[in-house]
Design a protein around this nucleic acid. Structure first.
Ligand SMILES: NC(=O)c1ccc[n+]([C@@H]2O[C@H](COP(=O)([O-])OP(=O)(O)OC[C@H]3O[C@@H](n4cnc5c(N)ncnc54)[C@H](O)[C@@H]3O)[C@@H](O)[C@H]2O)c1
Ligand SMILES: NC(=O)c1ccc[n+]([C@@H]2O[C@H](COP(=O)([O-])OP(=O)(O)OC[C@H]3O[C@@H](n4cnc5c(N)ncnc54)[C@H](O)[C@@H]3O)[C@@H](O)[C@H]2O)c1
Lengths: 218, 218
DNA sequence: ATTATAATGTTCAAAAAATCACATTAAATA
DNA sequence: TATTTAATGTGATTTTTTGAACATTATAAT
């Protein structure tokens, strides 16, 4: 069985491979790729091996063909339709990133909002009323949604999405959504991500043991 | 030594604890917290134990006091000043989230941009010219920056930040930044995060082995 | 054509993380 | 007060992940 960590690394490798390709390289060794991605060469070979991505015993990996296989694994031959719910700060920022998603064959096909002011104001993607979302999802067979609504509405919106048949949610609210077993939620907690930076930077990359000891004294 | 995974879980626990507190609870058992956070009760106790967060042999954990200790660990008693570089889609979205950061004592104190149109247009946070950034960082002793500039400028901006003394960077560009050992980079790759959702949702949470087998045949 | 080389791919070992099991102990109860 | 109960906290065990070692093989050199 495959775990997320593994997949995340594959996506990281792709990023590096694209960079190498842009630099004009045709082939790459596990060592080069590992150095760029910040993982060991063995890890690269292990991951590739697991996904049946093969190289050449002496010449390393052909960048183009690895990228092709990665695209195949990530179903890049298919059109990946995604909707955004909540066209506020985050929702709008994402909708303006069209080209960034497009190169990865991720198509933001529609936005939905409860606020009349935001509806149909033509951004890069059309924005519709929440009441039409259920039908839209069903008729267009949408499987994945980005949620960027206020935290207070998150669970409510989530339930609507799940009932309509959504199978994967990228959630920006700092709320742990209740979903059925078969629905995937990827929580993006930007405050947490910032906090980790602050914490790690300030503690110079390791826990301040003295500080923890202090905790025991009060 | 402490690893990010551990810290990330602590932040997750805090999210749950805040929720429980809002619901009126005063105490919580490792079992409850684990259920909410989606980890085992033992994991909770191990993590807490590692950070010297203690509970009560029969009565579980006092929510308020655990939150206090978490705040202490994450230095919530200190003011955490952060700057944003690049006031485009993402940068502006973050700058409008002021209150969200404020409750976590993360203060977005300033934005910086190269585009005259975006400078000093008073958003929630003041936006200055890039040329004044180095001085601002030094005089205000800023340690952490959010980077939301186009990918093409990412490394260039990163170098300026590092030279000015920045110790932690939250980076939204799909670019692996070259930084010295002592500088922390947290890469937020929203396309990757979306891709993981798509991948996992479409493959119903596990790798499609038949698909991988196909890979070996071409 | 043969040999040397240098990379992959896989097996085996070590390290890390998660889970289990249980001893400990605070609270409730009789 | 003594006993039972129910939770924590931690040492032992298992599982997962990572790293090292090496056998394999495509390419280059002789
Ligand atoms: N903006 C940020 O930088 C940021 C950072 C971290 C986390 N977040 C989180 O992301 C989420 C969105 O943040 P934001 O700043 O974009 O918020 P926002 O208020 O700017 O936008 C929310 C949008 O959702 C719409 N909405 C409200 N209720 C709705 C409903 N029931 N159905 C459909 N649409 C609804 C609103 O009309 C609005 O357009 C929040 O949970 C926030 O905590 C945001
Ligand atoms: N917008 C999204 O939803 C999204 C999603 C995923 C990734 N990203 C990534 O995040 C980054 C920012 O995206 P965005 O959509 O906010 O871009 P944007 O173009 O809207 O904003 C970039 C801002 O940076 C400024 N800038 C350009 N060069 C600069 C420099 N050298 N110094 C300082 N400022 C400079 C520009 O003036 C602009 O205001 C990009 O790397 C993008 O790939 C964005």
């Amino acid at each position: 069985m495959l775990i997320k960590k593994n997949v995340k690394r594959l996506l990281l490798y792709r990023l590096c491979l694209v960079k190498f390709r842009e630099m004009g390289f045709k082939r790459v060794y596990s060592y080069n790729l590992g150095h760029e991605a910040g993982v060991s060469a063995e890890q690269i070979r292990k991951d590739f091996s697991h996904f049946k991505i093969t190289g050449n015993k002496k010449g390393g990996y052909d960048i183009e063909s690895v990228l092709e296989k990665l695209n195949y694994i990530f179903r890049k031959n298919e059109l990946q339709k995604v909707i955004i719910v909540g066209m506020g700060n985050i929702g709008r920022a994402l909708s303006h990133y069209e080209c960034g998603f497009t190169v990865r064959r991720q198509y933001i096909v529609a936005g939905f909002d409860i606020d009349p002011v935001k509806i149909k104001k033509t951004y890069n993607v059309p924005v519709y009323d929440m009441r039409s979302m259920d039908e839209y999802i069903r008729t267009n067979n949408i499987q994945v949604a980005i949620m960027a609504v206020p935290s207070i509405s998150a669970q409510e919106v989530c339930t609507i999405l799940v009932d309509a048949g959504i199978k994967g949610i990228m959630n920006f609210s700092p709320v742990l959504l209740q979903v059925p077993e078969n629905v995937i939620v990827n929580n993006i907690n930007l405050c947490d991500e910032l906090e980790i930076v602050i914490y790690t930077a300030v503690n110079s990359n390791s826990i301040n043991e003295a500080m923890i000891d202090n905790l025991t004294r009060d």
